[in-house]
């Protein structure tokens, strides 16, 4: 895997908000068919780092390479152009719209006359939902009336539908029950098998150890280190998160 070109490489990323260095010279990478976990306390800079990749923030400095090519990501539209899709912690759904409108938000299907084609979008939504979550049946009600799991399905469907190559999941299971968490876990495995690269942000160590291939830990805006899951145990990871201490063993 090391000889391959990484799917994503972020080099020396930094961004500051009013003098506070939220992310300070952080470099991480991601290969296709791999899940990389990003761990750290609240405020460690995980979400901020990843938002520079998804286009929500513009980096103050650093380089982003996709398949070895230097790219510029200034807004969410750019990121989508590079097949980067994000599932946000806050779900980023418009609560007052139905599932189909949310799935296609910003990328509506149009009729030949250039008008929004709700029926075509509903049909596509039904298709992808029957694959992701066959229990999902509420297609015409606002998503505010859906359960947490159903809403998460909409958010995931949005990322998957447009053939993402790079998937960013920011606390994907934070609002979910055990069964729905299991559903998300299975989906991650499935997408990984399909060759996607996935960044998984979480502060649930258990989740991360189970799903990820490598783990990058951040503390106070800096990268503590990146380790392979099979080389470490929970305590090593905890040490990295809390003390910012790299484990003694060989790391990759």
């Amino acid at each position: 895997m090391e000889n391959q070109t990484p799917l994503v490489e972020m080099r020396d990323m930094h961004i500051a908000f009013g003098g506070n260095k939220a992310v300070d010279q952080v470099s991480i990478d991601l290969y296709s068919g791999e899940v990389v976990g990003l761990l750290g306390h609240n405020g460690a800079g995980k979400s901020t780092l990843i938002k520079m990749l998804s286009g929500a923030y513009k980096a103050d400095g650093g380089e982003i390479l996709i398949n070895g090519e230097l790219v510029e990501i200034n807004n969410p539209r750019d990121a989508r152009g590079y097949k980067i899709e994000t599932i946000y912690q806050t779900l980023a759904l418009a609560d007052n719209l139905d599932a189909g409108s949310n799935l296609f938000l910003g990328r509506e299907l149009l009729t030949p006359f250039g008008f929004v084609d709700d029926d075509a979008m509903e049909a596509e939504t039904r298709k992808i939902m029957s694959r992701l979550n066959p229990n999902f049946q509420t297609f015409s009600a606002p998503v505010s009336t859906l359960s947490g799991g159903q809403r998460q399905s909409v958010a995931i469907a949005r990322a998957v539908y447009f053939n993402a190559k790079i998937l960013i999941m920011d606390e994907p299971t934070a609002a979910l029950g055990p069964q729905e968490t299991q559903m998300v876990a299975e989906l991650v495995q499935k997408l990984k098998a399909e060759g996607l690269g996935i960044f998984l942000i979480s502060h649930d160590i258990h989740d991360v150890m189970e799903l990820c291939d490598r783990i990058s830990v951040m503390k106070n805006g800096k990268l503590v280190g990146t380790v392979r899951v099979e080389d470490v145990n929970d305590d090593d990871i905890l040490g990295m998160i809390i003390l910012g201490k790299k484990p003694m063993k060989n790391t990759s």
Binding site: A56, T86, D95, L97, S101, R107, V116
Partner: peptide, 25 residues
């Protein structure tokens, strides 16, 4: 309101301005 992207974005922005922004609107 119902059949154009403009109208769809008006309602999406009203429902969740952050979501609209993150969707590239």
């Amino acid at each position: 309101a119902k059949r154009t992207r403009f109208g769809r974005y008006v309602f999406a922005t009203g429902g969740n301005p952050d979501a609209a922004e993150l969707s590239g609107i």
